[in-house]
Amino acid sequence: MTTDSSLGTAATSEILHDIPPALVRTVTRSAAKERLYAVDNYFRESSWLFGNDLDDVLRTTLCVLKPEAAAGRRYHQALEALSDNGFRPVDVVRFRHDRLTVRETWRFQLNFASRERIDAMDLVLGTCDSVMLVLRDERWTPDSVPASVRLTALKGPSDPAQRLPGHLRSRLGAVNGLFNFTHTSDEPIDVMREIAIVCDEERRQLLRTRVRAAFDAVPEALAAFEALEAEVPAHDLDLDNSLRRLAASPGPAGEMVRAAAGRPIPVHLIAAAIRAGADGPGAHWDLLSLLTNTLRFNEPGIGRIFPNVLLASWQNAPAVTA
Rank of each mutant, 00 (worst) to 15 (best):
G251P: 00
P300W: 06
D240V: 13
A221H: 00
P264A: 11
G251D: 01
G262H: 08
H167C: 15
A224T: 06
T184I: 15
I189C: 11
D240T: 14
L287H: 02
V267K: 04
L311C: 06
D216F: 06
V257N: 01
G173V: 06
A271P: 00
F181A: 13
T182C: 10
N241F: 02
R275E: 13
I265E: 00
A261Y: 02
R193P: 05
L228R: 11
T294D: 03
R244F: 07
S170H: 11
R193I: 04
F306P: 10
A260R: 01
N241T: 13
F215I: 08
L206W: 04
G262S: 07
E194M: 07
S249H: 09
L287W: 00
A217S: 10
D238V: 10
C199S: 06
A248L: 09
A224V: 06
A230I: 05
N293I: 05
A196Q: 01
C199A: 10
N180E: 07
F179I: 13
P252F: 07
A278R: 08
A223S: 12
F297H: 15
G251K: 00
P266T: 01
A273P: 00
F306T: 12
A234I: 08
A259S: 14
L310S: 14
L246F: 04
H183E: 15
A223P: 02
V309E: 15
P233Y: 11
A227R: 12
R244T: 13
A247H: 01
S242P: 03
D238G: 12
A221M: 03
H183N: 15
P250N: 05
I302P: 06
E187M: 11
G303E: 15
G280D: 06
A223G: 08
V218R: 14
T182E: 09
M256H: 07
R171E: 15
G301Y: 04
R193C: 09
R304C: 12
A230S: 12
L239Y: 10
A276D: 11
E229G: 09
A196C: 04
M256A: 12
A248E: 12
A261F: 02
N241M: 11
A271S: 05
L222K: 10
V232Q: 11
M256S: 10
P250R: 03
D190A: 14
R208S: 14
